[in-house]
């Protein structure tokens, strides 16, 4: 199940240069490239002649040339050259997709192009904000995109999957989690007040006493999760909104479905302490990356089990509350999108 009329991250900005990049998105093959003026292009990655992926070709004179017979396609998607003949068949064209570069990511619109409004791109400004140190990255994951969303909205797995990295049992003992569900948003909030800071926080925050810690997970459909985590010296008013003398980080996640069982996982880590210290950015990133790979091992294994027996039963527990609410939003949006598409098709007949 894919939602189509949304912006998705297609690539890291640095991945799209003057060489074509092939990537399957929502089950559709797409080729991305830049022309000499820096303009971004996204085409269907299939030559209309003999269906070779155009990503196997190259950019020649600012147009994309197919590797097989040299047909060339301009930014409009129209074929502009067929080697050996003057006549260019009218249907020699490829579908184009709206694309935008923002927050060090390349965003693509896979749905109705008439609805593509860049103002709807989810805010990930921390990745490009000079007041924050940040590093974006990419993982290809052999798992359905919603398994990753479930994982990110669930705080209790930290105690088990990440017991040697970022978690401990205190995260599930006596924990109080708030799940706020709005029509198109889920917010999972947890405060840990007047407790010792974890060692990694002490290192960068130089805390000498207890702290108030927060973990706030913001989910926006289809699959954008922005985690706001940090700590301030206890009693300084962080739970009331006064964050002073502490540290803050953003763990930023944009999951793009590749197929029903594989995903493109774009993520980044941003920090507000020593934002211009590249070594600090790298250190924070590497710490989180270790934990990420622990998660990847989990949802790829889940996917293997699901693929073996898709209808095997599963039970829900309290800790699933955030993920369940996110899935309900996606289900509703999917029904709405399907109904709108059906109405549009009926009107067109």
């Amino acid at each position: 199940m894919f939602l189509r009329n949304y912006w998705y991250v297609a690539a890291l900005d640095e991945e799209v240069r003057d060489r074509p990049l092939g990537r399957t998105i929502l089950g559709e093959p797409v080729v991305l490239f830049r022309t000499a003026d820096g303009a971004l292009h996204a085409f269907e990655d299939r030559c209309p002649h003999r269906r070779l992926p155009l990503s196997m070709g190259k950019i020649v004179d600012d147009v994309l040339q197919c590797h097989y017979h040299g047909l060339r396609f301009a930014g409009s998607g129209l074929c502009v050259r067929v080697p050996g003949q003057d006549h260019i068949p009218q249907n020699a064209r490829v579908r184009t997709y709206p694309v935008v570069a923002r927050y060090r990511w390349i965003w693509i619109w896979m749905g109705d192009p008439a609805l593509a409004d860049p103002a709807q791109i989810c805010d990930f400004h921390w990745l490009s904000d000079p007041d924050w140190g940040a590093k974006p990255s990419y993982l290809h994951v052999e798992a359905n995109w919603q398994l990753i969303v479930d994982n990110l909205l669930d705080l209790t797995h930290l105690a088990f999957v990440h017991e040697t990295t970022i978690g401990n049992m205190a995260l599930v003992e006596h924990a109080a989690v708030k799940v706020q569900r709005a029509p198109n948003n889920v917010l999972v909030t947890r405060w840990i007040v007047d407790q010792p800071a974890p060692p990694t926080f002490v290192k960068v925050g130089k805390f000498t006493g207890n702290v108030d810690r927060w973990q706030i997970i913001d989910y926006t459909p289809p699959a954008f999760l922005r985690l706001d985590v940090g700590a301030c010296p206890t009693g300084t008013g962080a739970p009331e909104g006064r964050r002073v003398g502490g540290i803050g980080m953003r763990n930023l996640n944009a999951i793009t479905p590749e197929t029903e069982t594989t995903s493109h996982y774009f993520w980044g880590q941003a920090h507000d302490f020593e934002p211009h210290n590249a070594a600090m950015t790298e250190r924070v990133f590497e710490q989180i990356k270790t934990a990420f790979l622990e998660d990847v091992a989990v949802f790829t294994a889940q996917q293997r089990m699901i693929s073996l027996k898709p209808d095997a039963p599963q039970v829900d527990i309290n800790a699933d509350a955030g993920g369940i609410q996110a899935r309900r939003i996606v289900d509703r949006l999917y029904r709405e999108e399907q109904a709108a598409a059906a109405a549009h098709a009926t009107a067109a007949e």
């Binding site: 049992m169 599930v172 006596h174 924990a175 109080a176 989690v177 706020q180 309290n318």
Partner: peptide, 12 residues
């Protein structure tokens, strides 16, 4: 080990 994981749901 005492485990007391409590969830508050708020619908908006």
């Amino acid at each position: 080990m005492a485990v007391n994981f409590r969830v508050e749901l708020i619908w908006k």
